[in-house]
Design a protein around this nucleic acid. Structure first.
Lengths: 331, 331
DNA sequence: CTGTCAAGAGGAAACGTTTACTTGACTTGT
DNA sequence: ACAAGTCAAGTAAACGTTTCCTCTTGACAG
């Protein structure tokens, strides 16, 4: 920049004004500066700039997910990017692999780079360590799961409602023995979906059976096999997470029961409509999740200073066949 | 930091030394500094630090993909992250949506933030604009597709070889009328896979048929339908991209031809083994692609200054049934 | 003419760090 | 006991910008 100033024969201040589209600089000078910029191949240094600038904004936000390669989270990522792009804001993403420690490291790494905000799908159980950064102006939004020990904006899927609707759908098709296969119970989404399942049963006067409620199994495939080989097996399955759903589809097909046992999954998966019968799912909208989270974040950066908000996005039932089988396998 | 120094009763330099694990500082002073840090909730400012530091490294790298939400690229992303994490390096990712202009904007945004390196799955046809940044020390690696008009490290999948092998596999099962469905021909991967297809036919003395070679159709589903309704339809399909593969599976199933027409896809997709028959694919290893790219990048940052390297990763044939059907549909 | 004002430009301080250089107190070898 | 060397700590300059403040110039009103 100094060189540019020298070549253009102006002061540093003027170069800065031109580079930032500053208000009052004579057209001929501006042109000279621009020529010098091109000539020297000057590249603006955004980090140095934001160090001194009044707003102190880095125009970048951090994302912390379980795994950036999980289709669910990469869709959230994209949703965030969609709205960040409009503001010239870049996204830094990292995978926590569901490890609280790793999540914290990432958060610290990101705040050390002075990101303007953080969007987190929380793994850690305690987020109070972010309190200080927030006091220092960091915008904070949680997505997919609420945070603990810190009061912040959050955007969620209607897990309980979606699960309730999914299970009610099975009940409407005549099922009474419906198994619940869930993720590890320490996950908020898992317990919420279980709550929805219970709710649906209760509303229809169906008694829960302990044998049919299974959470946090590490080999879902085996679990499904076991369930379907019971003396009195469930007539329908509700799988409450995408990887479990996929494992269940495998198991059901391997046992050749795909026309006998009904199945609804939470969260949509690719090729769900090519499987025979098509897989009925309660779909989420991860991209919208990301967009909403980003909007909450930017509203904070734009000065909103009210109480924290909680957005809950609805789910959509997609009927493809597997969820519409009657008990015993008739359609 | 000034406050920390004041509270601990030491100079700024000493605080800096402690914060950076500097070599020679008396233990009691170091302890006092650390106490002050905790007390004040001091957060290191990495950007200010890298501005002055000798290495001038931001410990972050930029990623530019077509779409961070595409499972292929999100897996590459994760591969990069795997190796970056080991070095405490963060990844900034952006989606170009295959628009050269958007790619360039992203690249400029990233270099303005002084990332140490850039990993790009190129959309643009001319990357010479990066020449200057590279001269200034930016490490540069291209992934999935080679760059144009700039000589840089690149890591690719063996597109031609994989396609050749896939098509040979179909030929080995007795097929002679094999259709090729490809992506837009301006994409490097698309032309390479077509080359592999042609190669396989030539090696086995099969004449190409123009009618059976289709590239860059925007409605692959309709295209497959059209092909299969020809008077003399192909007995096998080779779909050379994941989205096209999925569309083809849909079309084949809708026409109830899944046991009549053989099908091999390039790039693996979820649930491919639950479809009936299972979908045979030539799988890539996108995560390894990302890891290799990151390794090339870091070797540059570690001082490697030799000629640019080109890594080509092999593909793996996964036989699941659809590729092993004989012409006419017998197994 | 003088005085007021606005616009345009420059000088220098500041942002939060690191680091080259300096200082001072010890240690060591003779 | 003294020169030389070592080590720990401090001072101040520097990194690449932006911004506050001042200065000059010219226009215009009284």
């Amino acid at each position: 920049m100094k060189q540019v100033a020298a070549v253009a024969g102006v002061s540093l201040a003027t170069v800065s004004r031109v580079v930032n589209g500053g208000p009052s600089v004579r057209p001929d000078l501006a042109a000279r500066v621009r020529d010098a910029v091109d000539l020297l191949g000057y590249r603006h240094n955004h980090t140095a700039s934001s160090l001194r600038r009044a707003d102190r904004l880095s125009a970048s936000i951090g994302l912390i997910f379980e795994d950036v390669a999980n289709p669910f989270f990469s869709a959230v990522h994209r949703g965030v990017e969609d709205v960040a792009r409009g503001r010239g804001v870049l996204t830094l993403a990292g995978s926590s692999d569901e490890l609280p420690e790793r999540e914290r490291e990432l958060a610290e790494s990101l705040t050390a780079r002075r990101v303007d905000g953080l969007i987190i799908a929380p793994a850690a159980t305690d987020h109070s360590y972010l309190q200080r950064d927030r006091a220092a102006g960091l915008a904070l939004v949680f997505v997919d799961r609420p945070a603990s020990f810190i009061d912040a904006d959050v955007v969620l899927t209607d897990n309980a409602g979606g699960a309730r609707e999914a299970v009610s759908h099975l009940i409407a098709h005549g099922h009474k023995r419906i198994a619940f296969l869930g993720d590890r119970p320490e996950l908020h989404t898992a317990t919420e979906r279980l709550r929805g399942y219970r709710d649906a049963l209760a509303r229809h006067g169906i008694r829960e059976e302990v044998m049919l409620i299974r959470s946090g199994h590490d080999r879902p495939y085996d679990l499904v096999e076991e369930l379907l080989r019971l003396d009195d097996p469930p007539t329908a399955l509700f799988t409450s997470q995408n990887l479990i759903t996929i494992a269940a589809v495998h198991a059901i097909h391997d046992l050749r029961l795909q026309r006998k046992v009904a199945h609804v999954g939470f969260d949509d998966v690719a090729l769900a409509d090519v499987v025979e019968p098509g897989l009925t799912v309660m779909a989420q909208d991860p991209r919208a999740l990301g967009r909403s989270a980003a909007e909450l974040l930017f509203s904070r950066l734009d000065g909103y200073d009210g109480p924290s908000r909680r957005i809950v996005l609805p789910t959509t039932l997609i009927e493809r066949g597997s969820g519409e089988l009657a008990p015993g396998g008739r359609r």
